[in-house]
Each structure stands twice: as structure tokens, then as C-alpha cells.
Write a protein that binds this DNA or RNA. Structure first.
Lengths: 352, 352
DNA sequence: TTGTATGCGTTATCAA
DNA sequence: TTGATAACGCATACAA
């Protein structure tokens, strides 16, 4: 007879009902080999009858393991982070791990995180999304003695998975160069907001690499650094448009920047790509809608791989951390094209 | 002297260092009134010296409280859910509560959730986002004996916060009617995917209410039901365009649908709003970029209020659950306008 | 294969 | 105001 007990059943209750000791219940429930089939069956039935669920607190107290992993992200509202969290969470849950989510919010929230270490003793491992660490912070985290996995950052001695930001950015800019562009603007995000993102720096470097290897100069007035977001991109594009002559193509460090840039161009009556080409980075879910050419990064796989690395770290405590680099992919849509031929380039194209 | 101990300090270690009993340490750390100032200070210093952190497992085992709340959402990747999770998480953390995140994924994941009840014993309360419940499921959840808070659904005997979907939809459609539209199409999501969303139904009802009170018929062929997403919206718009005569305005049940609809219209060379007006629902972060007229719902406040209700439920165990309804707001941008005057309406406008 | 006994780190009850 | 002690529920070493 199945009952809905007034108070939660514990392991002893199950033991009594199954006619065995609590220890046997524990073993049976955890699939221990040394339990006879008949006993196991009786235990399982008794547990089901009583709607018994193991107490994670008691179990954790005894084993030292929590069965949960922390996931720390700068912002949960960003499409990109949410996607990674979702993908990682799926894999983690498949391995019986719970996800304790922690959104940093802003620089103050970030500081608070490292001050109070709210994940201390609560998780078996931590996944960090796009969070660069100072040496002091690294030490603090190491002091937790749990595996650390980073997405989008590489910390010595830690597990990590990221994309090749430099290569991806170079790919984007090379695409523009191959189309014939020489005056190529850059929209990148201002740094120093408390987060130490490597992506802005790497993507800028990728652009430089592509420009240099094509023998093209990149004057400073074609670089616009703005706060992250659509509005930032819009402002940056306005700034670039006022340059004389203005760039014939723009590489936006993220699709959000590109979206803002497109808005400015549309409102200014500048045709895309006839007058100005725009390429982004990320392959945001809205990029297809806006026909934006961009460099896709495998968001899902980043999350999945991060989770897999974490599980590996948990399974083999001694193992040396691995670092993965996932490929990016150029997605050509309708916002890039050759520059108008009649417009002379401001940089000579000959040998130098 | 501050040391980085090889192994974690526990409460007894702190007690020894402070020269008091573990019980006193416990009281001091938790701000109990019955601890002298001097003792408290010594305990705090000892704890800091040893980098002591309370073990949530042990504490939870003793108190029965976990200090964490579960947040269950259909999908984490949807802008709307991510926004609510972020807002709620902020408030919860301010109250010292951790967030255990659980994304359902699909119908199978939803079923699994109710089968295994993975949050059982792990959380002090649960926040459900846009998840309707069957009576059986409601019973199952009640069996957990923790407060349940719902966003976007109203379950008898549970806490909840939602917007007035009917009123919001009516507001949207009335806006179109006031502009002079009579043939108003509807893009809504197919239901029956395992989730019991009330929003689609309510928003459809709101549209009916507005149409009826204006004395306008709403023929079935102006209703398009499609799977959720941009592509669904695009397909729905194509379907509506093929109607004879096609609607002069379309109410999309969500902004994502509207985005897809706009894409179809753009590619078909139909001018917006000159030929067809489009209004959405949500005020997605991209709505401004696309100049979409829409009905804004206060995503942040939904999350914040949900968290506050949850804290209230935790603070006053006996208290009767409250249900909040937050207002929506019409945001007029550039995708709605009056219908072309030369085009005769298919429903007479005179008195009836 | 199963049972007994102990410890995990904390809080709460009671006594001092 | 403080201390001793008994739960809390489980896992595991050891014994049978």
C-alpha cells in the first residue's frame, strides 16, 4: 500500500519496510554490486512505496560531495551566456549533477563574489563563463580545492574550452579584404569594467593580423570603442561615418554591435552592403533575421564540452587539466559585398 | 597569523581558537543576540583567521533548511525566461538564497522532472516560470511541502505573479482597431507540446474581446497557429498573406513571431506599415532595433516580485499565498499605422 | 552478502 | 551568557 506520509521517510524507514539494515538500503540504492538481486528489489520497492528520496545534505555530509556544480556567468540575460548555461546544464544533469547558478551582474557583484566566495563548500566544481582572473583571484579559487573549468578564458592549471578569437576575427576581416575593402573600421567594446574579457583583445588582434598580412594600415580613427550592446554599436557606427573618408566596411566585435551599426546605417540612408559592408561575430539568433554576415561560434558545443571536461575532472581527480579550442565558421549573408569601384581607396594598393 | 590550512577548518577548530564552545561559535556566527560583544568579536576573528565557512550540508542537516531555491523554466535560452531568472536571482541572492537552476528543455524533460522530482529535498521553495500544471502534477509538487511560486500561471493555493495577458492582447488589438483596421490577423503558437502555457490562450482571448467589443468578426482563416519562434512567425505571415483579402494588420502573440512576420513581409516586398501593420507582444530587446510596435511586459519586475513573494512565503510559513498581476504597456513604434484608405474594408463600418 | 558502529559538521535543547 | 549533549540522515570500515 502506497501512502503519502505526513513526514518524510528516511533510510531507516525504508530499511524497516524492506526488512534489512540501513546500510543495505544505502548500498542497494546506490547500485552497489554486493547486494543480492532479491534484496535490492525489496529495497527498491520499499523506497518507492515510501516515496523515499535520499537527503543530499546527509549524503553530502558523509561523503564530502555535494552533487552540484556552480556556474558563474557575468550576465544571464545575454543570449550567448544563456545558451552556454543551457547546453552545459543539460549535460551536467545527464550526469546527475545539479547546477547552482550565479550571475555576477556588474563589477560590484564580481568583487562581492570573490570577497564572500558564496560557492564555497556548496559545489564540487565550478564553471566560469568569460571571466578572466587576476592572480589573487586565481589563488582564492584554488583554495576551494575543486576543479575549475573556464569557457572563453585560459587559466594556467585549469580546464578550459574556448574558440580561437584571434583566428575568427582574422577570418572576418580577411573576408572583407578579399572583397576588396581596404578602409576597414572596427567596433570593439571598452574594457576595464571589472571584467577581464579576453575576447575584445583577441578579436582586435585578429583584425590586426589580417590587416598586416594583407599589407594594409589601420589608422586609429577607424577604431571605435564603445560600451557593449546595440546602442554602443549604433554610436560607434555614427562615429565611424563621420571619419573622412569613412570606412567602406566595418568589423563589429559582436553581433550586437553589428545590429546597432546596421540601425545607424539604415537611419542615415547608407546602403548595406553597397555603401558600407558590415560583418559581426557570434552568429546571434537574430543574425539570420537581419541577414548579417558573421563569424559563428559553436555556443552549444562550448557549453557541452565545458560540462564534459568538468565531469572528466570530477571522475579523475588526479588528471592534468585539458584545454580545448573549438573552430569558428564564416557565415556569409547579405551585409557584406565588394566596395563601390568608383570610390578610390585611401590606402595605396601597390607594393610597399 | 593567518594560515591556509591543508584541510578545511570546522566549527570546533574555530571554537578552540576563540577559546569558546562550538555552540557559542554557532550562535556568534549567526548573529544570535545572546552572545557578548567580546565573545562575538573573538569568534569572528578566529573564523576569519581560519577562513572558516559554514558547511551548508551540516547546517542543512540540522535545520532542515537548504538555503537554496529551485528555479524551473521551460527553456533557458529564451530571452524572456533568462531575463526573469536573472532578475529573480538577484533578489534571492540579496536574501542569502542560492539558486538551483533547472531547465526542462522539451516535453520529455518536463515528464522526467515530474517523475524523478530532482529538486526534492534540495530546495526550500520553487519558482516556476510559465509552467501550467495538471492536477496530478500539482499534487506531486505539494507533496514536497515547500512554497511554490509561479510566474505566468495561477495555481490554486500557490503564490503567483503574472501579467494581464488578456488585457494586454486586447490593448494591442484595440490599437490596431483604433487605427482603422478591421481585417486583423493573428499569429499564435500551437499548443500541446507538453507545456500548458496559458499565455497563448489568454492572448487569443484578449484579441477576441477587443474584436467583439468593436463589433468586428474574426474569420478563422485569419488565425495562424505555428510553432514558437521566428521561423514560425515567418511561415504564419506567409499563410496570412495568401488569404483573400489578406489582413491589413497582424497581431503576433510574441515579438519573435512578429520578427518572423516582418521578414516575410520584407522579402515579399510588402511595405510596413503602409500595406500591413504588425504588432507584437513582450517588448523583446530587439523590438526597438526593428522599430516594432508591441505590448511591453515588465520582465524584470516579474522576476523581482516572484522572488519577493518567495521570500515572503519562506518568512511566514503559515501565510495565505498571494497572487499579483502586473500591468502591461503599449509601446508604439513604426510598424503600425492606419490602413490604406483606398482599400475597402471587408467588414462594413456602419452601425449594425 | 549483510549488519553494526562510527563519524561527517552543524543546530537546538537543556542545564548551568 | 555559555557549555554539554543529543539529534539530523547517510556512507563506510569493519565484523560477521
Amino acid at each position: 500500500m502506497v501512502m503519502s506520509p505526513a513526514v518524510r521517510a528516511n533510510m531507516s524507514d525504508v530499511a524497516v519496510r524492506a526488512g534489512v539494515s540501513p546500510a543495505t538500503v544505502s548500498r542497494a540504492l546506490r547500485g552497489h554490486a554486493s547486494v543480492s538481486a532479491g534484496t535490492r528489489e525489496r529495497v527498491l520497492r520499499a523506497a518507492a512505496d515510501l516515496r523515499y528520496v535520499v537527503s543530499p545534505a546527509a549524503s553530502g555530509l558523509s561523503t564530502g560531495r555535494t552533487g552540484t556544480v556552480g556556474v558563474v556567468a557575468p550576465l544571464l540575460t545575454r543570449w550567448y551566456y544563456a545558451g552556454i548555461v543551457a547546453a552545459a546544464g543539460q549535460v551536467l544533469r545527464d550526469h546527475g549533477l545539479d547546477v547552482l547558478l550565479h550571475g555576477l551582474g556588474d563589477a560590484a557583484g564580481r568583487a562581492r563574489f570573490f570577497e564572500r566566495m558564496p560557492l564555497s563548500r556548496r559545489v564540487d566544481a565550478i564553471l566560469f563563463l568569460s571571466i578572466g582572473l587576476s592572480p589573487a583571484e586565481t589563488d582564492l579559487l584554488r583554495g576551494m580545492h575543486v576543479p575549475l573549468v573556464f569557457v572563453g578564458a585560459e587559466i594556467p592549471g585549469c580546464w578550459s574550452v574556448r574558440i580561437d578569437d584571434v583566428g575568427g576575427a582574422a577570418k572576418a576581416v580577411s573576408h572583407l579584404i578579399n572583397l576588396g575593402h581596404r578602409d576597414i573600421g572596427l567596433i570593439s567594446s571598452t574594457v576595464g569594467d571589472g571584467f577581464a574579457f579576453s575576447a575584445p583583445i583577441d578579436r582586435r588582434r585578429g583584425r590586426e593580423r589580417a590587416m598586416r598580412s594583407a599589407g594594409i594600415a589601420w589608422p586609429n580613427h577607424l577604431n571605435a570603442a564603445v560600451p557593449w550592446g546595440i546602442d554602443g554599436g549604433a554610436a560607434a557606427m555614427a562615429e565611424l561615418l563621420s571619419a573622412q573618408p569613412h570606412p567602406t566596411a566595418v568589423f563589429a566585435e559582436s553581433d550586437e554591435f553589428a545590429f546597432g551599426a546596421l540601425r545607424t546605417l539604415r537611419r542615415a540612408g547608407v546602403r548595406v552592403p553597397a555603401d558600407v559592408s558590415v560583418i559581426g561575430f557570434d552568429d546571434h539568433e537574430m543574425a539570420d533575421l537581419l541577414d548579417l554576415t558573421t563569424v559563428a561560434q559553436p555556443m552549444q558545443e562550448l557549453g557541452q564540452w565545458a560540462a564534459r571536461l568538468l565531469v572528466e575532472a570530477l571522475d579523475r581527480p588526479g588528471k592534468a587539466p585539458r584545454s580545448l579550442v573549438l573552430p569558428t565558421r564564416l557565415v556569409v549573408r547579405a551585409t557584406t559585398g565588394p566596395p563601390r569601384p568608383e570610390r578610390p581607396s585611401r590606402v595605396s594598393r601597390g607594393h610597399r
